[in-house]
């Protein structure tokens, strides 16, 4: 779970870096998209790196999804079917019983899953093409985000990603044994998770909003 999550976090960081090239204009972005495909040639066949990444990601997501659903089911059973809400008292709902994490991780994860499917159909396969299909990845992106609801939808998804990672990064590192503090608040990992999650959310959100608001060339 932790490893698959972190693999994806790593990918997201790279992906975000790539996306920010939108600000450098069409050429740079398309160049980058192309470069992805020819990287390593002739040692790797065309699209070699991309496929390695794709396989790794697919594997990560399958492992992650499988682990997540099993864990979810098991924890539901273990906590008497209602998780944090199993106590009848309606006091202290905001107290230590009702954790944001169990909620955001599970439903956030589902939103992310739906999003990824949509996202692949949209920008990779270009099957769904709001604003018009194109051979230029840059154009696809721009075409899409000029439409307000596409941007809003991406925004929702990215907020979900942000929340997921806010807890997920902390959690993965702890699971891997990195926490040395007595409470979560005191841990150095908490700000670290905040920074990475925040950076990813904002970094990803900049291009769509910039495009929507017409700030890119």
């Amino acid at each position: 779970m932790a490893v698959s999550g972190l693999v994806m976090v790593g990918y997201l960081l790279l992906h975000m870096y790539g996306n920010l090239k939108v600000f450098s204009g069409k050429a740079a972005f398309d160049e980058y998209a192309h470069h992805l495909r020819v990287f390593g040639e002739p040692m790797l066949p065309e699209n070699g790196l991309l496929w390695i990444v794709r396989v790794a990601l697919l594997l990560a997501i399958v492992v992650h999804f499988h682990a997540a659903t099993r864990l979810w089911a098991r924890n539901k059973r273990a906590s008497g079917a209602q998780g944090g809400k199993r106590y009848h008292s309606n006091k202290g709902r905001t107290g230590i019983q009702r954790s944001y994490a169990s909620f955001t991780m599970r439903w956030g994860g589902v939103i992310i899953l739906v999003f990824i499917v949509y996202h692949l159909l949209h920008l990779t396969a270009n099957i769904i093409a709001p604003g018009g299909a194109s051979d230029s990845p840059y154009q696809r992106v721009v075409n899409g985000f000029e439409i307000w609801w596409v941007t809003v939808w991406y925004t929702i998804a990215l907020l979900a990603v942000g929340f997921h990672l806010w807890h997920g990064i902390w959690s993965a590192l702890t699971t891997l044994g990195a926490n040395r503090s007595s409470t979560r608040k005191a841990s150095k990992l908490t700000p670290l998770a905040w920074i990475i999650a925040g950076a990813i959310t904002i970094g990803f959100l900049l291009p769509p909003w910039a495009i929507l608001l017409g700030l890119t060339g």
């Binding site: 273990a78 994490a101 409470t183």
Partner: peptide, 27 residues
């Protein structure tokens, strides 16, 4: 018992203040 997803409520409820880093140590 359920699996730990590092939520940290346990430490907050523990009357003896068992620190959360014990979980990382176990892992």
């Amino acid at each position: 018992f359920g699996g730990c997803t590092n939520i940290g409520e346990c430490t907050a409820a523990c009357p003896k203040g068992i620190p959360l880093d014990v979980i990382s140590r176990l892992n």
